[in-house]
Simulated scan of single mutants.
Amino acid sequence: MKIRVGFGFDVHRLVEGRELWLGGIRIEHSCGLLGHSDADVLIHALCDALLGAANMRDIGFHFPDTAGEYKNIDSKILLRDTVKMIRDKGYQIGNADITVCAERPKLNPHIPAMKKCLAEVMEVDEEDISIKATTTEKLGFTGREEGISVYATVLLQK
């Protein structure tokens, strides 16, 4: 059995007038994330980790923000397509470990729904997805509530 590890990172700016989508679910908040798609920074970092582990470049290569078909797209579609691409290459998902950095909103109450949503899209057990939320203790752009960043690590098996 071949084992591969991938790491993904993404960040999006918080702005007024947009919905906040994280982990495939909509979360009530005064701001949303700015991006070409729905700007689900968690899913984008997860896609990069999956693609990296399979040595398939990154999310921007496969789903460029210059392509009209991805304008305002639901990031769950990008994740579903990413999982299909890595499975077509012979990989299966072992697990994903994800850390979201945000001062607000408080994310812990939403983690079970995010895990459920991601597990359904990826066709894996919820037990195979770990999501943690942290703050940056009011330091940096995250601490100033200018944006949200996400780190994701995945294990693939072939």
Results as ranks from 00 to 15, higher is better:
Thr142Ile: 15
Thr99Gly: 07
Thr142Gly: 11
Lys84Cys: 09
Arg104Trp: 09
Glu28Asn: 15
Glu103Arg: 06
Thr142Ala: 15
Pro112Asp: 04
Lys116Asn: 09
Glu28Tyr: 12
Cys117Trp: 05
His62Ala: 05
Met85His: 02
Trp21Cys: 01
Met1Glu: 03
Leu79Pro: 02
Ser149Thr: 12
Ala49His: 02
Val150Phe: 04
Asn72Ile: 03
Ser37Asp: 06
Ala67Val: 08
Met122Leu: 00
Leu50Gly: 06
Thr134Phe: 07
Lys132Pro: 05
Leu33Trp: 01
Phe9Pro: 00
Asp74Gly: 03
Gln92Pro: 06
Glu126Lys: 15
Leu118Phe: 11
Val83Pro: 01
Phe63Cys: 05
Ala133Ile: 05
Asp97His: 12
Ile111Pro: 04
Asn108Gly: 06
Arg13Val: 11
Tyr91Trp: 07
Gly143Glu: 13
Ile73Phe: 02
Ile86Met: 07
Met1Ile: 08
Gly6Arg: 05
Ile77Asp: 11
Ala39Leu: 01
Asp128Val: 00
Leu33Glu: 02
Ser37Leu: 04
Leu118Lys: 14
Lys138Ala: 09
Arg104Asp: 07
Met56Asn: 02
Asp88Cys: 08
Gly32Ile: 01
Leu155Lys: 12
Gly60Leu: 01
Asp88Glu: 14
Ala67Thr: 12
Asp74Lys: 04
Asp88Met: 10
Gly52Leu: 07
Phe63Arg: 03
Cys101Asp: 10
Val124Leu: 00
